[in-house]
């Protein structure tokens, strides 16, 4: 199988004042379609820089990045915007929901950019929110939701266009352990369901254990690129998600309720 994400001799140098900082030295790698890939490494190792290059958020100093047949490192910003619209999804550490839009409007945003009509995109966004167990929160603003809920809205937004590849930068970085497991479970389930390639940066080793492929970055170089064998993966996942499945409240986990008066009202409904 040909890799869907392919990197050739990637090098990224930042200029900080007069000094040059080499964030990525010489990275080459490939990620297969449908894989869940974790990029791990200590902070400052260059893993976030790598993800930004893969997603086309930054131009590399040297080297090429391909997604499918397209060399995204050579695209103009407008081409990239269209390409992202068609093929890529993003999940951020700080959720990055638009604070003035409701959950359902946030999820529907990529559809709006694509030109889908209001009715149709609301329908699709609602379906996605339901999958995330957030149907009742659809008309809430991000400030009226907990971190876990916000991130689930973020996930719904990333998946709503059924992209080929989703990039996630420390998606659970701001969440507690319990919520982390639930969010991770949801992400993996969705990726599998849609056959989406899922590329995630994390510094938590145990999260990486659940991935199909773990790429470790150190000092701007690939330290290791391991395809986890099925047995270990199954064991890690079982351990990780023990109890999550039963506890996976289809809607509104009580622990994650922020104490806004608005929330209470919706509970009573």
């Amino acid at each position: 199988m040909n890799p869907i994400v392919r990197v050739e001799h990637l090098r990224k140098v930042y200029r900080v004042g007069k000094e040059k900082v080499v964030a990525l030295n010489d990275v080459s790698l490939g990620i297969l379609p449908g894989e869940v890939c974790c990029i791990v490494g200590a902070s400052g190792s260059g893993k976030s820089t790598l993800l930004n290059q893969l997603a086309g958020l930054e131009k590399p100093t040297k080297g090429k990045v391909y997604i499918g047949q397209h060399e995204i490192s050579a695209m103009t910003e407008n081409e990239l915007a269209k390409f992202r619209q068609a093929h890529l999804g993003f999940i951020f550490q700080s959720y990055n929901l638009l604070p003035n839009l409701t959950a359902v409007e946030n999820v529907a945003m990529p559809l709006m950019f694509k030109g889908v009509g209001r009715k149709e995109r609301t329908k699709q966004a609602m379906a996605q929110l339901k999958r995330m167990g957030l149907a009742k929160r659809a008309n809430h603003k991000p400030t009226e939701m907990s971190g876990g809920q916000q991130q689930r809205v973020g996930i719904a937004r990333a998946f709503v266009l059924k992209p080929k590849v989703i990039f996630a930068d420390e998606p659970t970085g701001n969440l507690d352990t319990k919520t982390t497991r639930q969010v991770l479970y949801r992400m993996l389930a969705m990726a599998k369901e849609n056959g989406t390639t899922f590329v995630m940066v994390t510094h938590e080793k145990d999260l990486a254990g659940c991935a199909d492929r773990v790429i470790t970055i150190q000092d701007g170089n690939v330290l290791s690129d391991i395809v986890v064998d099925e047995e270990t993966k199954a064991k890690n996942r079982a351990q990780m998600f023990a109890g999550v499945e039963e506890n996976l409240v289809p809607d509104e986990p009580v622990a994650a309720q922020p104490d806004t008066p608005d929330t209470k009202k919706s509970e009573e409904k």
Binding site: A55, L57, E77, N78, A81, K82, F83, R84, Q85, A86, L88, F90, N96, L98, M109, P110, F113, K114, R157
Partner: peptide
């Protein structure tokens, strides 16, 4: 955010 989500310039 809008740019990353594919909003054209």
């Amino acid at each position: 955010v809008m740019k990353v989500l594919g909003c054209e310039l």
